[in-house]
């Protein structure tokens, strides 16, 4: 589930508040959004791929919270990793057109 918002890099654009299907975040006046309902997170990673500055981190486990910190995620170099892999980061745009389903042996 959603673990971390890096409030240093977050630009308060509130796109995560908008795209989260289960309404996990709350927008705050003059500041970054907060994780208001962590238990409702369905671990779909949508907030992460939509975040334009890679400030969010979703742990793969939908059932447990691990209390991760910004430092933990930075050290593991995981901020933005999924967004890059689907070609939604500027430097990986060529990957948008890469979908090897048709190359999988049938």
């Amino acid at each position: 589930m959603i673990e971390v918002i890096d409030t240093e890099t977050c630009t308060d654009c509130n796109l995560c508040v908008k795209v989260c299907p289960t309404n996990v975040f709350d927008a705050i006046a003059d500041g970054p959004p907060v994780i208001a309902r962590q238990g409702d997170c369905q671990t779909c990673f949508m907030c992460e791929v939509y975040c334009p500055v890679d400030s969010l981190y979703v742990d793969p486990d939908p059932a447990n919270s691990y209390g991760l910190t910004v430092e933990n995620v930075k050290q593991a170099n995981l901020f933005g990793s999924y967004r890059r892999s689907i070609g939604w980061a500027k430097e990986t745009r060529h990957l948008r057109r890469v979908d090897d389903h048709f190359r999988l042996p049938q």
Binding site: P60, L78, Y82, D100, H101, R103
Partner: peptide, 20 residues
């Protein structure tokens, strides 16, 4: 070659493994 194809077919499949 096949492992690379699998990754490019389904990037989301690998999220949990890469993160763990």
């Amino acid at each position: 070659a096949l492992k690379a194809i699998m990754r490019r077919a389904q990037p989301n499949f690998f999220i949990p493994f890469d993160r763990r």
